[in-house]
Simulated scan of single mutants.
Amino acid sequence: MEGPTLQDSVEAALREAGVPAGVMPSGRTDRGVHARMQVLSLRLPEAPALEEMLGRVARHLPPDLGICVAKRPAPSFHAQWVASGKSYRYRLQLEGTVSEAWRPYALDVPREPLLASREVRPERLAELLNHATGTRDFIAFHEKSSPRKPRRLESATLHARGSGLYEVRLEGEGFARYQVRYLVGSALKVAAGLLPEEHWHAALEAAAPLEGLKAPAQGLVLWEVRYPAAVDPFSPGERLHPPGLPGTPPFGDEAPG
């Protein structure tokens, strides 16, 4: 990976703010993937004034990285080990031309070399994604560096955002490396008629190898990391509207202009 990671940037800001502490992330995202509510936990020798600490740290963060909330969760809280699930969103321009605001954050399907000149009907894509839900061996859809084990995909739905932009929303207990990108890319390949549908079903039902497609990173957003109610550091309102989060792409819910 080139350049500093999100964790590097946060730890550097903590040091500059006089709060030297290592952070424990809920997981890692691929280079080029965006994160709306990535969670980092840290343990401090003293309980600081949170608002004051937040202000000091925020001054040392790069402009495209912000801290939305700081809380004192349960003593046993660990950002990764107590997480109960994750939500991802992947933006696709299926029809028309992607707007300038969304261009860096969406896959422009009609202009993607492999998919160019192939029609991808939204209802067809939604049907394929729905078939992927359930507890399965997703080995055909993730890197072999991730452990092979059953994983539960709770939902995989497609939502129209307007002007030909669509959003794939995926929720699950946990995801292997590149799993979301392979699921979205391979579903697109089947919907475009470039991969037989029976191969898709065999990969899902019997973990058969698949000549899938890894969708590009820029369309993907880690939307949120979920925790059991007893240890969740965020209120329902904060999850819906994280304080300080920009309302612009790739995080805003407004339709593109």
Rank of each mutant, 00 (worst) to 15 (best):
G3S: 05
D8M: 00
E11Q: 09
E16T: 02
A17D: 06
A17S: 09
G18R: 05
G18A: 07
V23K: 02
M24V: 15
P25V: 01
P25R: 02
S26M: 08
S26F: 06
G27H: 01
T29M: 04
H34N: 06
M37D: 11
Q38R: 12
V39Y: 06
L40G: 03
L42P: 09
R43I: 09
E46N: 11
A47E: 15
A49Y: 07
M53H: 09
L54G: 13
R56I: 06
R59Q: 09
H60M: 11
P62Y: 01
P63A: 12
I67E: 02
C68H: 15
A70H: 08
A70Y: 08
K71C: 15
R72I: 13
R72P: 05
P73F: 02
P75K: 06
F77V: 02
A79E: 02
Q80I: 02
V82Y: 01
S84C: 10
G85A: 03
S87N: 09
R89S: 12
Q93D: 05
Q93Y: 08
L94G: 01
V98C: 14
S99R: 07
A101T: 15
Y105E: 07
D108S: 10
V109M: 02
P113V: 02
L114S: 04
E119N: 11
V120Q: 09
V120F: 10
V120E: 04
V120H: 06
R124E: 12
L125C: 13
L129T: 05
H131G: 14
A132G: 07
A132I: 14
A132V: 11
T133W: 05
G134H: 03
G134C: 05
I139G: 13
H142S: 06
S145M: 07
S146V: 09
P147Q: 11
K149A: 06
K149H: 14
S155F: 10
A156P: 00
A156Q: 02
A156H: 11
A156K: 04
L158I: 04
L158K: 05
L158G: 04
H159N: 11
L165K: 08
V168W: 00
G172Y: 07
E173I: 06
A176M: 12
R177C: 04
Q179Y: 12
V180R: 11
R181P: 02
Y182V: 05
S186T: 14
A187S: 15
L188T: 01
A191T: 07
A191V: 05
A192E: 13
A192Q: 03
A192V: 06
L194P: 10
L195S: 13
P196N: 07
P196V: 13
P196R: 05
E197D: 07
E198L: 01
H199R: 15
W200Q: 12
W200I: 14
A215Y: 10
A215N: 12
A215V: 14
P216F: 08
P216C: 08
G219W: 03
L220P: 04
W223A: 13
V225M: 06
Y227D: 00
P228Q: 00
A230H: 07
S235A: 08
P236D: 08
P236Y: 04
E238D: 10
R239E: 09
H241S: 15
T248I: 11
T248P: 00
P249W: 00
G252Q: 07
D253T: 14
D253R: 14
